[in-house]
Design a protein around this nucleic acid. Sequence first.
RNA 1: GCCCUCAUCGUCUAGAGGCCUAGGACGCUGCCCUUUCAAGGCAGAAAUCAGGGGUUCGAAUCCCCUUGAGGGCGCCA
Length: 495
Amino acid sequence: MIMEYNKIRVRFAPSPTGHLHIGGARTALFNYLLAKKYNGVFVLRIEDTDELRSSAESMNSIFESLKWLGLDWDEGAMADGREKGDFGPYIQSKREAMGIYKKYVDYLLEKGYAYYCYCTVEELEEMRKKAQLEKRPPRYDGRCRNLSKEKIEQYKKEGRKPVIRFKMPDDGITKWNDLIHGELKFENRLLYDFIMIKASGYPTYNFACVIDDYLMGISHVIRGDDHISNTPLQINLYKAFGWKLPEFAHLSMILGPDGLRLSKRHGATSIGEYKRLGYLPQTLKNYLALLGWSTPDSQQIFEEGELEKKFDLSGCQKNPAVFDTTKLTWMNGEYIRKLSKEKLYELALPYLKEADINLQKAKVNPQDIVAIEQEKYKLLSDVPKLVDFFFKDDIDYDADSVEKVFRKPEVRDILIGLKDLYSNMDGFSEALIEEKTRAFSKEKGYKTSQVFHPLRVSVSGRACGPTLFRMMEYLGKEAVIKRINKSIELINKLF
RNA sequence: GCCCUCAUCGUCUAGAGGCCUAGGACGCUGCCCUUUCAAGGCAGAAAUCAGGGGUUCGAAUCCCCUUGAGGGCGCCA
């Protein structure tokens, strides 16, 4: 059914009242992927009709996160303040200022599809309370639908600022065929006269969204499940104008591990936070795609560009998905392993700097040092703590490792022997160190593990680390001998 | 309270009437590899398909009810 459209036009329409969070990013991603899949257009529209909570900082933060995720938009507002596309402006406050919405409000007013409502917020609050008590739905009761001329004059004299409401049909059914849920229907008598224009003159979401989706030629409205109940309201607006409906697709919600809607108390929620924690954009993109969507063979990892080819609304799930950080983190490890060592180093750099690691201290290219533990990083932020000992003059010895490895009686002699061995070596390459060390073990009658373990702790300060002989090569002969000396002193002191 | 939605391993999911003694992935357990930790390979535990009724020769798949969960009922979006 999607192919009926000449050109798919989808949009992501965030309100700039905070950072881009997981749910928003997933919605943006699905819109983006559908556009790519069908060679359509992905529009970014800013819905800043909440005058109190919208901010330019939030808008820029959203731009930044979207770009970081690689969700480039074809049309819409841009970070530099300009716009691209022929359907602009793409920021609703700008559209309002141009009087775009007013035209449509006037039409509705004139045709009797809309009316002024002079109720105050207090009156509305009271209305809701009363309805609750009487076990009726707490909705606006339509009392201003047919105000007398006198009443209107009176309200005006009182200085009341009216809102404009949409006159919802009293009966009938509003239904649509949701691309994910199938047929969805609502009884019109259960709908209510929603506000289109606030007392401030600003449009509300339900109004501006419809006008703009229409004017921007949006063919598919893909958004969260939480908008299902807004949809019949909006459809009635389309009908009042006599406009063709777009297709609707409502994505399931993303929940926290406790089954509740994802929120701050579940930890990181914004894309920016995940970036800071050391997740890769590829990871988020891949993982988010799998929240509510899958291929028939449950493919997990996607190559670059593959999601754009394989994604489709038909693979979308109706039920909500729990956001699982464990799987996200596993996937990040997968993507870190795919990185070239140059790229890995580049991405790890901010974390190394933050950990105050002095890169000048390295005896070899720091790129090689970072790469030596590549298969172990789950997060970019893991990098400093796994390789820090390469960049220090003086290392600390991990107490548990010392206790477990250094306490053995033969360790002192082994280390002394190794120190002499290395001091007399010409060259200090991985292969050479290994050859000499193995020969040493054999000659002295030790099992290799008896030698390798203490050596590892001696040169790195801990029992777990990179492959031993390459680590030693990167450390350099001088540092290795110095550290062996230090650990011998430590053993003399402790045992 | 009213309206709406949803329901397969702990989690993400495959499944569109017989291929299901329910498949994959994360996580978990064990083994192999191995100088450690990882990575990798192999094996395994893990879902009476929410429960109950139908329909059908046959149901995870279709229908109904119940239950549970989520969403909405704003001059927020």
